[in-house]
Amino acid sequence: MDYSDSVQKVLLRKIRKAEQDLLQLKLDYCRFIFGLTHRARVQLDGQSYLVRSVDVESMRHLDDGSFSKPVIAGVPLDSPDSSQAMDLGTDWQLEPSGARAAAQGSA
């Protein structure tokens, strides 16, 4: 193996590690800034959904230095096990914690 192959392998490993770190940082940003956790509940057009996936690649840099909301996919809250996840876009709102507590109390 010559020197350039060795350097290429090291650089590729470092790039993959940096990409993984960036992905994790964006997921952390979504969790702490937007409140998106595993199984978070969001509202869109008056309906409640359980979040199934977060597309961090859809986040864009804003003029103030922050990131835009990510595109998410979710299933309707009233039928979470039987539904296919649907694209909810970026117009969703995190469900207020009071509404979540009331829904858990009635279940």
Rank of each mutant, 00 (worst) to 15 (best):
H61V: 04
Y29R: 02
I33T: 15
E57C: 07
Q24R: 13
S66V: 02
L27Y: 02
L22Q: 11
A85V: 03
D87G: 11
A101I: 15
S106D: 03
E95P: 00
C30A: 10
D87V: 08
G65I: 07
K69D: 06
R60I: 00
L44F: 01
V71H: 14
F34K: 04
L77T: 06
K69C: 08
Y29G: 01
I15N: 01
L11H: 03
L11D: 01
D64R: 05
A101F: 15
D21R: 07
A101E: 13
D45P: 01
H38L: 10
F34W: 13
H61E: 08
M1N: 01
Q24L: 14
S4Y: 13
L94Y: 02
V10C: 04
V56E: 07
R41F: 04
T90N: 07
L44C: 03
Q47H: 12
G105S: 05
S83K: 04
Q104M: 12
S48E: 10
S53F: 07
S48Q: 07
Q24N: 14
G98P: 00
S4F: 13
D55I: 03
V71K: 13
H38N: 14
L62G: 00
S106P: 00
Y29M: 01
G105D: 08
V54T: 10
F32S: 07
P80W: 04
A18G: 04
Q8S: 13
W92F: 10
D45I: 04
S53W: 06
M59D: 12
G35W: 00
E57W: 00
M86E: 15
C30V: 02
L25W: 00
V54C: 10
L11I: 08
C30K: 06
V42C: 00
D45L: 11
Q43N: 06
M86A: 15
Y49K: 05
S97A: 05
D78N: 13
C30Y: 06
Q8D: 12
K17R: 06
A40M: 04
Q24S: 12
H38G: 09
Q24P: 00
T37R: 09
F34L: 10
F32H: 09
S58L: 05
L25N: 09
V51M: 06
K17N: 05
A85Y: 03
F34H: 12
Q93R: 05
A103R: 15
V54M: 03
S79I: 03
A101M: 14
D81W: 08
V42M: 02
G74E: 09
L77Y: 12
P96T: 03
D87C: 14
A107P: 02
K26P: 00
A99M: 08
V56N: 05
A18W: 08
S6H: 03
D55N: 15
D64S: 06
Q84A: 14
V10L: 13
V7P: 03
G46D: 11
L23R: 13
R31K: 14
L23Q: 09
D21S: 10
G105Q: 11
Q20K: 11
V42D: 02
D81R: 08
S53I: 09
L50C: 05
F67N: 04
M1T: 02
